[in-house]
Amino acid sequence: MRSSQRLSLVFASAGGTWPHDDWPAPDDPFVSSVLRVSPPYRGLRDTTADVVVLRCEDPEVTFPGLLTALRAREVPVLVVSPRQDTEAVLDVFRAGAGYLVEGDHCGQMLSSAAMAAAVGHTYLSPSAAAALREGARRMAATDDAMERLRALLSPREQQIMELLSTGLGAQQIGQRLRLSEKTVRNNLSNIYAKLDARSGTDAVLRWLGATPVLRT
C-alpha cells in the first residue's frame, strides 16, 4: 500500500463497546471504508482490507481466534483492549500485532497506528510500550549476551532502537532525532540485518531481551 492511499479497515468486535464512536470520521484523511464483523469473523480469510482492528476484553482468549479466522492471510492487526499487563501485551506483540490500551489513545493515534500497521510497523500505545519494556527487563539475559548484541549497533542505531522500542514509528523517530524518515528507514534496515531480525517486532524483542539472543 502506498502511504498516500486511504485505508480500508475491518473492525472486529469481541464484546464491549467501541471506545471511539467518532472514529473514523467521514472525512478522515487516512480511512476510506470500514467493515464491522463479530465472532467467529466469517469472511476474514478473504478480506482485502489493509488493517484489521480487534477490540476485545481479553486478547489472550480472543486474539488466537482472530488469527485462526485470518488463516494464512498476512493482514496487519491492531488490538485494542483494556488489559495492560505484560503477559497480554507481549503475547500480542510477539505475534506481530500492534497493541493500544483502552483510554491510552485518541482517534488521531488510532489513525497513526493504522497507517503504521499498513506499512509494516508494529504500533504500541504508551502504556503498552511500558508494559512490554517492563516484561523484557524481567526476562533479559543474565550474562553479557545482550551487551554483545547491542554493541553490534552504532550509537545512532542504538538511539533509533531505543525510540522504536517505545512504540514510535519511523516518522516520529525522525522528528525526534532530526533525521529524514528515509534515513531512519535505511538505519532500520541495517539494524535488522545486524540483529538478524526479520521485522521491527523481532528487532525490538531482541533489543529488549524478550527473545533468545543469538550467541556469537
Rank of each mutant, 00 (worst) to 15 (best):
L177R: 06
T201I: 08
V119F: 01
R148F: 14
M115R: 14
V51H: 01
D143G: 10
D144C: 12
P24K: 11
K182N: 07
L78F: 00
A129F: 06
G174R: 00
G120A: 03
T122K: 05
Q158G: 12
S112T: 05
R215G: 02
D104H: 05
N190F: 07
E157I: 10
I160A: 02
P29K: 04
P40E: 07
I191G: 02
Y192P: 00
C56P: 05
M1P: 12
S127D: 11
L179N: 06
S3V: 02
S127T: 04
A49T: 10
P19F: 06
S112F: 02
A114C: 10
A118M: 04
Q108A: 11
L78T: 00
E87H: 12
D50Y: 00
L195Y: 04
E87K: 13
Y41F: 15
L152M: 14
Q172L: 11
R138A: 15
L78E: 01
S3C: 00
L177T: 06
R150G: 11
E157A: 14
H20T: 09
G15N: 04
R198E: 13
Y192L: 11
E57L: 15
D58K: 13
V31N: 07
Q159A: 13
R176T: 12
T201V: 02
R2W: 08
H121V: 01
V80W: 00
E57R: 15
D143E: 14
N190T: 08
V204Q: 09
T142W: 11
L177D: 03
T183N: 05
A49D: 03
E74V: 07
G167Q: 03
A130V: 01
D28M: 09
P39G: 11
D104L: 03
A88C: 05
D104Y: 06
V34C: 09
A49C: 08
V52M: 03
R42G: 08
A170H: 05
R45T: 09
T166F: 13
V10Q: 01
T166C: 07
P126H: 08
G120D: 00
A193W: 04
Y41V: 03
P212F: 05
L177W: 07
P59Y: 12
V213T: 15
S189T: 12
E57N: 14
R73K: 15
E162P: 00
H121N: 00
Y41K: 05
Q84M: 08
L54F: 10
N186I: 03
D22V: 10
A151E: 15
L208Q: 13
W207N: 04
V184R: 00
P24C: 08
M115K: 09
R6M: 13
V31R: 09
E134C: 09
E181G: 03
